[in-house]
């Protein structure tokens, strides 16, 4: 009964995604339609514009197609400033200075002193996407937790039975084998938060018009930073000894090994952040490049063909979304496991 329900939920979610993926192509097409009308269609510019952060969220062309996000700035000269990003655009969508600030190539600088440091805390497209993802994850798992409370001692139902196998998978296949049966519980909240944040970020990022959240290097940097901090805070005596005075290595070799080990402390999270960033960004670039083919060749036939291919690439991207969430969490668990491992 519960399994059937879970299956139903899964089927529903899967169908919803298929429908959304079908629209993905149309979404991109409509975004790109305007660019092709202008002279000299620049595919790489369009693609990079999509995968990178921005102060506005452009859905479709037209007056209401763009969401102007708030700009929050701090500079030593002017202090805090909050205003809408629409202030940077005039009626013809050309950039203009506002309140002494200039927006140029996504950077905001002071008009009279371009080299001065301006802290840009704006709710950009990616920050907004980040907030949406966080709220979605939070709402879903609070609902799941509530189900566990009201459903105590009974078989899981509905949303609970959909997510329970994934939670149990993270616990039994990611945390337990890498960290060990005794200590894994302490790191479960982090690993589960990490896994579901990345998973939802990846999947939501595939929706048409959505921002590229987990394919943004700042986002992956922070995730890897969390893993780095948690790993090293929990590192035991043996872990640090292994790094600074590697046992079982002759003294002359220690001069080579120890710097390598110290470097290793940083390369591990660095590999994490690069892997996720590259995997997700590359996926977006591939999909957009395929769609851009239609505008490069100016042909409907190519458009139909590329949309079909993009549909399949989107399915692969769904798989990649899950795999990357798994891999990031798995390696985080592995590093934590290495740092907390007991030696006999």
């Amino acid at each position: 009964m519960a399994a059937k329900q879970a299956n139903n939920t899964f089927t529903k979610v899967f169908r919803a995604f298929l429908v959304m993926l079908l629209f993905t192509g149309f979404g991109y097409n409509s975004v790109l339609a305007s660019s092709s009308e202008e002279e000299g269609f620049n595919a790489s510019e369009v693609i990079l514009h999509h995968v990178m952060d921005d102060h506005v969220w452009h859905f479709v062309d037209g007056h209401y197609g763009t969401l102007h996000l708030p700009i929050i700035l701090y500079s030593e000269a002017k202090g805090f400033d909050i205003f809408s990003s629409s202030n940077f655009y005039d009626e013809d969508h050309n950039l203009k200075p506002y309140k002494g600030y200039v927006l140029e190539h996504g950077h905001i600088t002071l008009e009279n002193n371009p080299d001065a440091f301006v802290l840009d805390l704006s709710i950009t497209k990616t920050v907004f996407m980040l907030m949406i993802t966080a709220v979605v994850v939070l709402l879903i798992f609070i609902a799941v937790a509530r189900k566990y409370k009201t459903n105590t001692g009974k078989a899981p139902t509905g949303i609970q039975s959909f997510f329970e196998p994934i939670i149990v998978f993270v616990r039994d296949e990611v945390a337990k084998p890498n960290i060990g049966d005794k200590k894994y519980e302490k790191f479960m909240p982090f690993l589960l938060s990490l896994f579901f944040f990345i998973l939802f970020g990846n999947i939501l990022g595939l929706l048409p018009g959505a921002a590229n959240l987990t394919g943004n290097i700042a986002v992956t940097t922070v995730l890897a930073l969390f893993t780095f901090v948690i790993t090293n805070i929990n590192g035991n005596k043996h872990y640090w000894k292994h790094i600074f005075w590697t046992p079982g290595v002759p003294l002359p070799l220690k001069f080579i090994i120890v710097p390598v080990e110290i470097l290793g402390v940083f390369t591990k999270p660095f590999a994490l952040l690069i892997r996720l960033f590259v995997a997700i960004t590359a996926g977006h670039i591939v999909m957009l490049a395929l769609i851009c083919l239609a505008f490069i060749f100016q042909s409907y036939a190519v458009g139909v063909g590329s949309t079909i291919i993009v549909l399949f690439i989107s399915l692969i991207e769904l798989l990649v979304a899950a795999i990357q969430a798994y891999v990031f969490t798995m390696f985080s668990a592995l590093y934590i496991g290495m740092a907390t491992e007991e030696h006999h």
Partner: peptide, 23 residues
Amino acid sequence: TGLLIWQIIIFGLLFILLRVLAW
């Protein structure tokens, strides 16, 4: 820089909230 700060704050908050309310 801004995104880094936002990500730290929001992911940190998400982590703490999920830890208490969900996990």
